[in-house]
C-alpha cells in the first residue's frame, strides 16, 4: 500500500511538472500547444540514454532532458510560432503526430516501439535514491520559477502578447523572442519531468508520449485553472487519482474501469466549463470575462 501511494505520488509530481510548464505557455502566453508530450518524451529518452550509456545520475539525466527538450523546442517551435491561435493548435498537433512516428522509428535512440528497457536505478553519490523526493524538489523549483516569472516583467510580456500582440509589439516587445523563450522554458521543464519519469519506471516507450498524453496534460491545466499557480497541481492530482479512486469502487467491474473513467473525465470537463470556466483554482469572474 505504501509502495502504491509512493508510486502514485511520484507520477502525480511528474505530471504536475508537465501541467505547470504547459500552463506557463497556455495560461500566460495563450499558446495552446497540444504537443507537450513530445517534449516529455524527448526528456525521457535523453534521461534514459544518460542512465543507460553513462551513469544513472538523476541530476545529469534531468539536465540532459532539459537541454534536449528545451533545445529541440527551439528548432521545432520556431516555425510553428509564426502562426497564431487555432493555427498553432493545428501545427502543434501535426508536430505531435510526427514525433510519435519518429519515436517509433528511431530505434537506436528510442528503442522503437519496444522502448528503452532496464534503465538502471538512479544513484546519487553512489547511493540508490528513489525518484519521489527528486520529483518533489523539481516540482517545487519549477513552481517557484514559474511564480517568479509570472509575477515579473516576463509574465507581463506574455500576458500582453496574449491580449493584444500588435500592441505589445508597438511598445517595443520582440514578441517572437518572448514566445520562443517561454516555449523553451516550458519544454525544458517537461524534459525534466520526462527524465524523472524514465528513471522512475526503469522503462519508457512511445505509448507515454502520444497525443492522448498531451490532451491529458491539457485537461489537467484546464480543470485546475489556466493562468493560476496551483491549478495545474490540483488538476494533476484530480485526474490521476480518479482512475485509482474508481478502481476501489466495488460495483464497477475491473474491465469497465477504463470506459467509466472516460465518461467521468468527459462529464467533469463539461460541467466544469459550464460552472467554473476558469478552472477549479481560477477566479470565477475572470473565467466569465474571458469566455
Amino acid at each position: 500500500m505504501i509502495a502504491y501511494a509512493a508510486n502514485l505520488a511520484t507520477i502525480v509530481a511528474i505530471f504536475a511538472i508537465l501541467a505547470a510548464t504547459l500552463n506557463f505557455i497556455v495560461g500566460y502566453a495563450g499558446i495552446f500547444s497540444v504537443a507537450h508530450a513530445v517534449f516529455f518524451g524527448l526528456g525521457a529518452y535523453a534521461g534514459a540514454q544518460v542512465a543507460l550509456l553513462l551513469i544513472p545520475d538523476p541530476l545529469l539525466a534531468c539536465l540532459a532532458g532539459a537541454v534536449v527538450a528545451g533545445g529541440l523546442s527551439l528548432c521545432l517551435a520556431l516555425p510553428a510560432l509564426r502562426v497564431r491561435g487555432e493555427y498553432f493548435v493545428a501545427a502543434s498537433m501535426g508536430l505531435q503526430m510526427m514525433a510519435v512516428t519518429l519515436f517509433s522509428e528511431a530505434k537506436p535512440l528510442t528503442g522503437g516501439i519496444g522502448g528503452l528497457v532496464n534503465i538502471p536505478r538512479p544513484t546519487l553519490f553512489g547511493v540508490e535514491v528513489s525518484v519521489l523526493p527528486l520529483a518533489l524538489v523539481a516540482l517545487a523549483l519549477i513552481l517557484l520559477a514559474t511564480a517568479l516569472l509570472q509575477r515579473g516583467a516576463f509574465g507581463r510580456t506574455l500576458q500582453a502578447l496574449r491580449d493584444a500582440e500588435s500592441a505589445a509589439e508597438a511598445l517595443g516587445k520582440n514578441v517572437a523572442a518572448a514566445k520562443t523563450l517561454a516555449m523553451a522554458f516550458a519544454c525544458a521543464g517537461a524534459g525534466i519531468g520526462g527524465a524523472l519519469f524514465a528513471l522512475h519506471l526503469s522503462f519508457v516507450n512511445v505509448e507515454s508520449f502520444t497525443m492522448d498524453q498531451s490532451v491529458l496534460v491539457m485537461a489537467m491545466v484546464i480543470i485546475g485553472g489556466t493562468g493560476t499557480l496551483w491549478g495545474p497541481l490540483v488538476g494533476a492530482i484530480i485526474l490521476l487519482s480518479l482512475p485509482s479512486g474508481l478502481a476501489f469502487i466495488p460495483f464497477i467491474p475491473p474491465t469497465e474501469v477504463g470506459a467509466v473513467q472516460q465518461i467521468v473525465y468527459g462529464l467533469a470537463m463539461t460541467l466544469l466549463m459550464i460552472f467554473r470556466p476558469a478552472g477549479l483554482v481560477g477566479d470565477l469572474s475572470k473565467g466569465r470575462a474571458t469566455a
Binding site: R156, T157, Q159, D163, A164, A168, A289
Partner: peptide, 19 residues
C-alpha cells in the same frame, strides 16, 4: 489594451521592452 491585465500592469508593460 491588454484587457485582462490591470491598468497599472498595462502601463508597466509599456516600460518593459527586453524580451
Amino acid at each position: 489594451l491588454f484587457t485582462h491585465m490591470t491598468v497599472r500592469e498595462n502601463v508597466l508593460a509599456a516600460t518593459e521592452t527586453a524580451s
